[in-house]
Structure formats: C-alpha cells, structure tokens
C-alpha cells in the first residue's frame, strides 16, 4: 500500500444508545478498491454513512491530511460521493438530470445550468456507466439495472476522491453486478478511493484490492482478499466454509456450506 489517503482512528458510533461501531481504525490509500464485508448487522452501512458524514461519529477521520470534522457540509460532499443502498428516485426526472445532481456539491444546483467542467464530468460519468443512450428518458421508465447504472453515474459525476457505495450490486442480475463492479474498478484505477459494501464474497475477492471484514461493530480483518478472507475468518465471522480457487490470476471464493 502507498501512503494512506483516508485515515480513521478510534472511530465509534452510537445509535439510540447502542454501540454500533467501536474502535475502528482505517488507513486507506487513493487509487484503491476496498470491499467492506461482514454479516448482517455488523456495522458496514453505518461505517460508510459515518464516513459520508450522515451519522454523528466519535474519533478522528482525516482525508488527504485534513480533519473531516473541520470541513463544511459542502466541502465534505465534494470529497465523499455516497451511493446509498436501494433505489430511491421519488419523482420521474430525466436520467441526465439525476446524474447532474452529482455536481450539486460543486455549486451547480441547476442541471440546466452546467459549467463546461460540469458538462464534461456528467458526460464522462454517463459514458463510463454506459447510460448515454437513455440519458433523456425519465428514471421511472428505466429497468432496475439501468437505474443502478444511472445512480452510479451520479456518484461518479461528483468526481470526489472517495466514492462510497452501499451494496450497489444488490438485486441486480449477474451481468449488471459485473458491470457495476467493473465501473467501480475503473474509477479506482483512475485514482479514486472506492469503498464498496457487499455481501458477495466472490465479487469482493474478484475485484477488490483489499477487503475490510466487520463483525459486531469492529474491524476483525483487513488486507488483500485472500489474506483477509481466510478460512478462519470465514468460519468464525460468516459461519461458512468456502470453496477456493484462482482464475485468470484473481482469487475465487465461493461460500460452500455452513461451518
């Protein structure tokens, strides 16, 4: 790993009196795809939301050497692009306008008044996720897979150094799962620190540079996929045994039976 870009120390989150996260320490470099895994209720989404500034958090987070607590809401929004879980588009906006909302943190609040830089960011994001073809169609008329790509384009358009994605592959078909992971991989290769929450250990090990394993609000393992997702971790944390192999130089991990 190169020099850490995003660092966290003694991170703790309490929600309605209950400790959801405690003593989490992170040191993640830029240009990196991190998969965050763990059983249900382990605190993955909470950690992501803590980084995005959506839940009150104790401890210190720094990004590029700056303390997160010292940043304004908008400054933080420019550094972290956040893709929440699930599909939320309450009104039928054109896909292009939704992607353009990614420029909101940059002060471009009106999708019809983009600057040259905004237009380029939106165009790039739409090309990267292959949504240009239906850019003018209302979001509610698109299929689930198309909608997830538009949502991804929206976070890419932020052009933030950190991209946080909460289960972006959930409820997608196999092809769309691969597409979404590929787009995230490309973003990481282009210099972004991508942190993606997933339940799919196979996708995690196939695409991620490193894996964070959370259990009961604590970080129990981290490292390269094969190093973090050891048999011991899988049986202890996930209570499964896995089939392991390698294909085209990437590790293959398939949960096989209950441990």
């Amino acid at each position: 790993m190169s020099a850490p870009f995003l660092q966290a120390q003694q991170l703790a989150v309490r929600l309605s009196g209950r400790a959801v996260l405690s003593e989490v320490a992170l040191a993640l470099p830029a240009r990196h795809l991190v998969a965050m895994v763990g059983p249900n209720g382990a605190g993955k989404s909470t950690l992501l939301r803590a980084l995005a500034g959506l839940v009150p958090v104790q401890g210190e987070i720094t990004i590029g050497g700056e303390r997160l607590a010292a940043l304004s809401l908008r400054e933080r929004a420019r550094r972290f692009a956040y893709l929440p879980q699930g599909d939320t588009a309450h009104w039928s906006l054109p896909a292009r306008d939704i992607v353009a909302l990614g420029r909101y943190p940059h002060g471009t609040v009106d999708p019809e008044r983009l600057t040259a830089a905004d237009r380029e960011a939106v165009t790039q994001a739409m090309q990267a996720t292959d949504v240009t073809a239906f850019a003018d169609r209302p979001i509610t008329e698109l299929s689930g897979g198309e909608r997830s790509r538009v949502a991804l384009a929206r976070v890419l358009a932020v052009q933030a150094p950190v991209l946080l994605a909460d289960e972006p592959t959930a409820s997608l078909d196999a092809r769309h799962q691969l597409d979404v992971m590929r787009y995230l991989r490309n973003a990481a290769d282009a210099g972004t620190l991508v942190i993606v929450v997933t339940h799919d250990l196979g996708l995690a090990s196939r695409f991620a540079d490193s894996v964070l394993v959370l259990a009961d609000g604590q970080l129990v393992a981290q490292g390269k996929p094969a190093d973090a997702l050891t048999d011991a971790v899988l049986s202890k944390v996930f209570r499964v045994n896995a089939y392991r192999a390698a294909h085209q130089g990437e590790p293959v991990i398939v949960p096989w039976e209950a441990a």
Binding site: A52, L73, R74, R76, A77, T88, A89, W91, L101, Y104
Partner: peptide
C-alpha cells in the same frame, strides 16, 4: 436533490 432521498441529499451537501 431530495428526490434521491434525504441521505443522498445530505451527502450532496
């Protein structure tokens, strides 16, 4: 921005 949900709107600043 809120049409994407409150969390997303918050994350957009």
């Amino acid at each position: 921005a809120l049409s994407l949900g409150e969390e997303t709107a918050q994350s957009l600043g």
